[in-house]
Amino acid sequence: MTLENNIKKRIIELASEGKRIDGRKLEETRKIEIIYDISNQAEGSCHVKLGKTEVMVGVKLGLGEPYPDTPDAGNLIVNAEVTALAGKEYEPGPPKEEVITMARVVDRGVRESGCVDMKKLVITKGERIWTLFIDAYVINDAGNLIDASAIGALAALKKAMMPVYNKKDDKIEITGNHVKMSTKKLPIAEEPIAITIAKVGDYLLPDPTKEENQVSDATLTITLNKKDKGVSLQKGGSEGFTKTEFEKALKIAIKNSKDIRAQIK
């Protein structure tokens, strides 16, 4: 038996008794801590700790031109990186498929839920708009990077201020939240929460640790809005879920997303 097999066996054995490998209850989320304003150059920023997983997230707004098919909306760009700080297995370099997928899942949560009122990010219809950048930087990987990044994205967005735009010169006059002259907040309309559930054996474990992530047969990320409506789904891993498992996962996600949302100011 390899080390990984032994760990998997233990995770399953514990789950059968309603427990998790880090001592929490079966369907519990780890402790969340959010430190705001980590960069005064950002319009909004935070440092999220989900258990020992840590992510730094910043929101920036830049001037741009609208896409031809959406002349009346701002642009959204979500970028995520698992920095080489995060663990010995990570190397600097272009993001791997796992990380790109993570950025895409966070992106879809924000986009599909209508989290930010993109229509309000238009300066001159068809000509000038704001481009909204969300950058999530994982600095310590202790599992479930997607949910931590999504929490960080929402927290940073909710704190973000609009830069001051000078129409005459067509440039940004004041940026970042350090100059408190900007009093206009970024228009937030929804609060999507991503819940990732790892399937290990027959058990569904929300907010998986790194070990649980490693031995999981499959994962499912369910993003829900304030009304418990689904805004995005993403299945990962080579195994699958039954319909019954999916229904159960959904119930866990609905419950846990409410708890998490309440913790984001």
């Binding site: 960069s39 150059q41 950002a42 910043g58 830049g62 080489a84 950048f133 950058d135 930087y137 940026t175």
Partner: peptide
């Protein structure tokens, strides 16, 4: 040594590519 800037560390968003 790898030196990088987080995109939100400067007033105009830095392209994440080194």
């Amino acid at each position: 040594v790898h030196y990088r800037m987080m995109p939100f560390s400067v007033s105009e968003r830095k392209n994440p590519r080194p």
